[in-house]
């Protein structure tokens, strides 16, 4: 009896939640069924967190009549998700969030897809990279740390990162080239795991995204040395008792001229109509205007550059070239690329 009641309860509650909410019509086209939001990575990572947040914001503010589901397709360094949307030609009920594997996976594995196979919708933000060390190590600046790495000799210091031949390893190689050092790069499965391994001192440093390590920073377990960008972060609110994001120097100030930002953007399947694309552009614009989004941006110290249309395409074009160059220099290209 009790079970039946609680099932009834659940059903009633669900029905209430799923009832379509009244909202303004957004241009000419609207989804007519559940929208699949693909994450080309596993659960718990940066892209997954952002996708789930967007999903939650849309639901909370009733921005879309049809429901949305977040689906993780992280197999083959994201190739699973990208191939899925590439093959869904003309399907307006699928969108995908990207990370750098949009560029790196086809280059490193030779799996046949390219951003030009998809329909670019909007860039939501850019994710930063920061050089982190455990808080109880003596290195206060990036320079001190790099000097220590140099003094120890090649391969003695361990750099932890997410995945192999992806953004973390690309930055590590760029860092090595700039400073003439040599790290031992250890690939892990996800950003959260990397930060924890650094706290446990199983590696000496990482290049975690801010959102992945902020909690350990606030707990006094990790220390940021420099941010891989040509200008400092803009967030001035105190994160720890003494420091704000904006207090972290750029790596350039420390004499290491590397800037690397990771795309957090949305794409659709190829062959969708202009009206369909515009629907999602408008939807994402609304998402970015919510306080929840702004709060998330600040917590994760994101670069809030947002592009659409031709600007977005131009940016993608440039970034693809850059990744090709970076990966070629690092020797990460698949045979025949």
């Amino acid at each position: 009896m009790r079970i039946r009641q609680s099932i009834a309860c659940a059903i009633a509650a669900l029905a209430a939640a799923l009832a379509p909410a009244a909202h303004a019509q957004l241009g000419g086209w609207e989804p007519t069924k559940t929208v699949e939001f693909i994450v080309p990575a596993g659960t718990g990572g940066g892209a997954d967190q952002m996708a789930r947040l967007i999903d939650a914001i849309i639901k909370k503010n009733n921005l879309m009549k049809q429901p949305m589901v977040v689906v993780n397709k992280g197999g083959g360094a994201g190739a699973e998700g990208f191939l899925d949307i590439k093959n869904a030609k003309g399907d307006p009920h699928k969108i995908i969030i990207t990370l750098s594997n949009l560029f790196t996976t086809p280059l490193a594995t030779g799996v046949p897809f390219n951003w030009k196979d998809l329909t670019p919708v909007a860039m939501l933000a850019l994710d930063q990279f920061i050089l982190w060390v455990p808080a109880d190590t003596p290195y206060k600046t990036a320079k001190e740390y790099i000097d220590a790495v140099k003094a120890a000799g090649p391969g003695k210091f361990k750099m932890g990162g997410t995945g192999s031949k992806q953004e973390d390893e690309i930055i590590t190689v760029a860092l090595e080239k700039q400073t003439g050092t040599k790290f031992t790069y250890i690939p892990y499965k996800g950003g959260g795991e990397v930060a924890t391994q650094l706290v446990g001192k199983h590696v000496d440093s990482t290049v975690n995204n801010p959102i992945e390590a902020v909690s350990q920073w606030r707990a006094g377990q990790l220390r940021p040395l420099c941010v891989f960008d040509d200008q400092r972060l803009v967030y001035r609110g105190k994160v720890t008792e003494t420091m704000a994001w904006s207090d972290i120097p750029t790596c350039k100030e420390a004499g290491v001229d590397i800037d690397y930002l990771m795309l957090r953007g949305i794409f659709m399947a190829p062959g969708v109509t202009e009206a369909q694309r515009n629907y999602y552009v408008a939807l994402l614009k609304k998402v970015r205007e919510t306080p929840e989004w702004k709060d998330f941006m600040e917590k994760g110290a994101f670069n809030q550059t947002a592009l659409i249309g031709d600007d977005y395409r131009a940016w993608l074009q440039k970034e693809e070239q850059r990744h090709y160059q970076l990966m070629k220099e690092a020797g990460f290209l698949a045979p025949g690329k």
């Binding site: 669900l14 069924k33 559940t34 429901p67």
Partner: peptide, 18 residues
């Protein structure tokens, strides 16, 4: 309820469920 999309064909499409 659980919003898990399963393979659908012409019959569901006829009902507008596709």
């Amino acid at each position: 309820w659980f919003k898990v999309p399963l393979p659908k064909g012409p019959i569901e499409a006829a009902f507008g469920l596709h």
